[in-house]
Simulated assay, not measured.
Amino acid sequence: MRRVVRGFWGPREESVEALAGRWKRTLDRLAELLPAADPGAADGTAGAGGAPWTWQQVQSEGPATALRADEPSLLAALRAVQAADGWTDTTGTGLSLVAGNAAGWRIDTGGRAGGTSEFLLQAVLIGIEAPDGAEVPDAALLAAVAEIWEPDFGGVTDDDVLDTLEDDGDFDPDEPSVGWVGHLSPARAALLPDELAVTRTELPDGGALLDIAPRSDTEAVLAANLRLRDAGALEPLPRPMARALL
């Protein structure tokens, strides 16, 4: 089943150059952490010697186009998004990229960033489909998202977890939550209850990475989310939003 590494935050205006830099670091880190997913490695056992991957950029109209994971190419792609009809700096600038190979790996990543909306969260999402039995470094992937994008909250999750949170925990789709691995920004991490039985890793910015449960234990993930919500660690950003982090 596809898993998704997610990060969300409030309004944070950023230049297109800054966004290209964040995307470059993100794609570089994916290549480091998931070398078997290299689209240039047909059998999924070897990468392309450290060369940047070539992704497919999903377009709003027409077929996907090849996009090399270097900063000039990413900068040009982001500028094209901003030049398109209907784009506004309030919503933010998005990319939608896909890569995969014949070994059964598929990564789709996208989101919106640099926007100033008072009501729409900014986000980055990384969807991963892996061959049976393949190791996926969930905590390292979420740590990379936390480092590169500086989100307010995030997690590694899948449809089973999201359905359980919505059906049994009354979590709205846009309400803060975490998966079997979670990330909290510094102010949220400060509200972690002492009795919460999870493995906590302090991050350099004062936030926290939480190892909550095995992927299959949706009830444990639900229980942790309920406790975090009760403690105020999953309080939504006040609307209209005026800052990126709680």
Rank of each mutant, 00 (worst) to 15 (best):
R3E: 05
V4D: 13
G7T: 09
W9E: 04
W9G: 12
R12S: 02
E13N: 05
S15V: 02
V16G: 11
V16K: 08
G21M: 05
K24E: 14
K24C: 03
R25N: 03
R29C: 02
A31E: 13
E32P: 06
P35S: 03
P39W: 11
G40K: 05
A42T: 09
G44S: 08
A51T: 09
A51P: 03
P52Y: 03
W53A: 01
W53K: 01
Q56I: 14
Q57L: 15
Q59T: 04
P63T: 11
A66N: 05
R68P: 02
D70Q: 06
E71K: 08
E71C: 02
P72I: 04
L75E: 14
L75V: 04
A77S: 14
A77D: 07
R79A: 04
V81E: 15
V81Y: 12
Q82I: 03
T88G: 15
D89W: 14
T90C: 05
T93P: 12
S96A: 14
V98Y: 01
N101I: 07
G104S: 05
W105Q: 06
R106K: 13
T109S: 02
G110S: 09
A113R: 07
G114R: 04
G114H: 02
G115K: 07
S117G: 02
E118P: 11
L121K: 12
Q122L: 13
V124K: 09
G127Y: 06
E135L: 03
V136T: 14
P137N: 06
A139Q: 06
A140W: 03
L142E: 07
L142H: 12
A144F: 08
A144P: 12
A144C: 11
A146Q: 09
E147K: 06
D152Y: 11
F153L: 04
G154S: 11
V156D: 12
T157I: 08
D158E: 10
D160M: 09
E166T: 15
G169A: 07
G169F: 08
D170W: 03
D172I: 00
P173I: 08
D174T: 05
D174Q: 09
S177G: 00
G182A: 09
A187H: 02
A187K: 08
A189G: 10
L196F: 14
V198T: 04
T199G: 07
L203S: 03
L203P: 07
D205L: 08
G207R: 13
A208W: 01
L209M: 12
D211N: 06
A223Y: 07
A223E: 15
A224F: 00
N225I: 05
R227A: 15
A231S: 15
L237P: 12
M241E: 01
R243P: 00
R243K: 09
A244N: 10
A244P: 13
L246N: 01
L246K: 01
